[in-house]
Nucleic acid binder design. Structure first.
Lengths: 257, 257
DNA sequence: CGCTTTGTTGACGGGGTTCAACCGCAGTGG
DNA sequence: CCACTGCGGTTGAACCCCGTCAACAAAGCG
């Protein structure tokens, strides 16, 4: 049985001590019942004793920052749930133009796709841990527990809603509005993880944000400074943002006022 | 039992002879087994005798061009399958900026959303007929026939893939590339309906296309003429396009060459 | 230490939006 | 019948925002 391939973003496999745990075998660290993101993940749909079956199939994957979990075009053999860390879902055009189709955070499920091959590459932004299950196992699990499939559908719909929201941002919003919306989204995600407050940690680079919002790094940078000048945010450093005026950010993001 | 509200785009209910059939009751014209889009729709997941249960719950909705099937913000009570015609899924910002989040064609399912309220308005572009089922009935049907839920998940994933493709277009493609991709998409959809060939009928206006591609009408119009000048398409009238050079259009849409 | 990466800021130019005019067509009503 | 109106579509001209190019600072890292 092969394991999900780990590659560096540039295509060379990353050497070194850190390799993927073979997903088909339980690693020492894996134990669904003690999972930190169980309340966030699809597995909530399973009762405690049903979880045993899942546990037997699941394995951990550990990635260090910059490593690639999946490459666009590869055959999809596994689905994943993010346990910790942050990843990006990207696609690159032949001429180098890049899109970040989304960011993946703890609790997020990776595997909603109708295609047999990956439509995007998935790279770790920071060191990350994922729970992996072979697609075949997942299918079997779904057949045995319809509640799981229902939960998956539910989540796919939520993700569809979110993606459609991004369409609006990309099609019709100004850079400032896009950034405001992005920051609020990230804050909302944080809240869902139980980390409230207006402090925000952005693990991704400005380039990631730019490719996510359909802008250039320069425009993103300028938009950050404008939000800062206008008193809506403050930033200790580029990756630590405080939302000083969420109301006004909201108004921006919704194009009111 | 109330029926899906039909409104004109401006908000006034449309008077006149054409009203929605009450979806909870079978209308004379409804009969799943004779459905023209059965092979395209989610109902393929049901066997012939299972279809009887569906038949009892389903009803037809008829819309004339311009009528509204659902309004952004309304409570979602029904899900639909497009039988004939064409519709658009739209959202409008307070200041008038408009987004067309997608076009709905025969066989398409309307109802993938995690939200309890509509996130978009849905308007008929041309006269359309839809098959409607109350959400509660749909849920019950899913519980009784897990195959249906599986099919729904499958389709939600396909739609998610398609929406993510649009993200790339909106974020990083030039107007010409977006239009090329759009035309090919429409052609592919046509093919799925069994209407092959390079002839293309676009029921929507240039404004719809513009708001779908994140451009202005002017830019869309100019892009059409450029494609025409470059010999990639020809147009009898604005709504009837012939794809003269699909290969080159493909290259454009994929940003090759 | 150099070297690379990341982020910010300035100057400039171009592509797409904005503004405007025009055409063809379908209603509409005198 | 025909003027009038509105809408959809196309094209031209001017503007401006954002992308491009460039320089620089700061941090990370061998």
């Amino acid at each position: 049985m092969d394991s999900p391939v780990l590659r560096s973003p540039r295509g060379k496999d990353v050497p070194g001590p850190i390799r993927a745990a073979t997903p088909s075998r339980r690693t020492g660290t894996h134990a669904c019942t003690r999972c930190l993101v169980r309340h966030l993940a699809v597995c909530t749909a399973l009762s405690t004793d049903q979880t045993e079956a899942l546990d037997a199939m699941a394995g951990d994957v550990r990635l260090q920052a910059g490593q690639m979990l999946a490459r666009e075009g590869d055959v999809r053999r596994y689905v994943f749930t993010v346990t910790s860390g942050a990843l990006r879902r990207i696609r690159v055009l032949p001429d180098g133009r890049r899109l970040v189709a989304g960011f993946l955070m703890p609790g997020d499920f990776i595997g909603f796709s109708g295609a047999s091959h990956y439509r995007h590459s998935i790279e770790a932004i920071s060191d990350s841990v994922l729970c992996s299950i072979a697609q075949a196992d997942m299918r079997e699990l779904c057949e045995r527990h319809p509640g799981l499939e229902h939960e998956l559908l539910e989540r796919a719909c939520v993700e569809l809603d979110a993606t459609r929201n991004n369409l609006m941002a990309l099609a019709r919003m100004t850079p400032l509005e896009r950034l405001a919306g992005f920051l609020l989204d990230m804050a909302a995600r944080r809240q869902r993880q139980g980390i409230g407050g207006n402090q925000l940690v952005l693990p991704m680079t400005r380039a990631d944000i730019a490719d996510y919002l359909g802008l250039t790094v320069e425009t993103v940078s300028r938009s950050f400074t404008r939000l800062r000048q206008d008193g809506m945010i403050s930033a200790a450093d580029p990756h630590h943002i405080e939302l000083l005026d969420p109301k006004r950010l909201q108004a921006l993001a919704e194009a009111r006022a």
